[in-house]
Computed example of a mutant assay.
Amino acid sequence: MLVLKEIIRHYNESGQPVGSKTIMGTLPMKVSSATIRNDMAALENAGLIEKTHSSSGRVPSDQGYRYYLDHLLQPAMVNPEDLNMIQQIFHQKFYQGDDLVAQSAKILSELTHYTAITLGPEVNNLRLSGFQLMPLGNRRVLALLITTSGQVVNKTFVIPDTVTGEQLEAVMRVINDTLVGKPISTVMNQLDTHLVPLISRYIHSPDFFLDVVHRILNEANADRFHISGKMNILDYAQMDDVDQLKSLYHLIDTEDQLTALLSLDDTTNEPSEHGVTVRLGHEFPNQLLSHMSLIRATYHAGEYGDGIIAILGPSSMPYSRVVGLLDLFRDELARRIADYYRDHD
């Protein structure tokens, strides 16, 4: 299978079909051209490589890529330049944990020139740090919710004529005195139970206020995808149809479709020994991804939850380098996120 490995390496680097003479010059041992041609014929009969119409060279088939990824892939060491860039990003000061996850997508896209997707951990102990109401004039009020991760979520709403500023201040004190320090999931549950009678002491019909707080809590508790390098899709999508490109951009911009794309419940390909899952384009039900691959890794931030980092690129991407990069990156990201939340607990 050394010949298959070399064919994939050359094809991924050049994008051109690979002939026996090319392979003969790069193998670690001296092998005749006839032997290589025989090996290539055997690989072709097995469906692992295929001949193009335009040359006598061979290119990897979908089945060949799958075999390579499952049995032959060896992650490459991260080069010093990439390592230095990663270390620089993780030594910056971040004021929100989500900023760290967002910046990770940006740096991964810059390092690979593909599209990077990151998802922050579902922080099991994310707690309410504070709740504030700030008058803006004309009966408009800004509601601010702050979590222990440093995340700030805000909504502007209009209070009815029957509600006074003093009443809102009293409700704000009730929320802070009762719920600060509790997990966001607990806050959401208690808001509709024993907190309603407390709020009703100050606001006779608090439905408008409860609706605002619910929307803020849902946003704070929602998955947060960060995508960087969307324009890089134009370099590898292999699409001439503008409508197809629009559909592809819509796919990665739609939370439900992105969740399905990155689903941890996917059993098509189990994580490799390196803890990274690679899904080839023909394995996706969506034909828009037929010439692409998704490399996905989960990072574990200990008690602070799990997150995802992923690279969407062409089927012919340099898998050894990208898998090695993701493997290192997820360890650094997990460590930095755990440190961040620990410092803010």
Rank of each mutant, 00 (worst) to 15 (best):
R140M: 15
H113S: 07
E110H: 06
Q103I: 08
A105G: 01
V196L: 11
L126S: 05
N189T: 12
E169I: 13
F157L: 07
F131L: 15
T164G: 13
V174Q: 05
P197V: 00
T186F: 11
V171C: 05
G150Y: 02
L126F: 02
Q167S: 04
M188A: 13
L144Y: 14
K106F: 08
K155P: 00
A143M: 12
E110T: 03
G165V: 10
V152E: 09
A105E: 00
K106M: 01
I107H: 01
L133Y: 15
T193N: 14
T178A: 11
M188S: 13
Q132F: 15
T115D: 06
N138F: 01
V196Q: 04
H194P: 04
E169Y: 12
F157S: 03
A143D: 09
G165Y: 15
T162A: 04
L198V: 13
L100E: 08
P121W: 00
R139F: 02
D192M: 11
P197T: 01
S109Y: 01
V180H: 06
Q151C: 04
L128F: 10
L191Y: 10
G181A: 06
L108C: 07
I184T: 15
L111G: 02
L168A: 10
Q151I: 06
N176E: 12
R139S: 10
D161C: 04
L108F: 11
V153I: 14
V187H: 07
G120Q: 03
L168R: 05
P135D: 13
K182G: 01
V171P: 04
D192V: 10
T112N: 01
L195S: 03
G181E: 05
D177A: 14
S109M: 03
G150P: 02
I199N: 01
I146V: 14
L126P: 00
V153T: 13
M172V: 11
T118R: 02
L198H: 08
L179T: 03
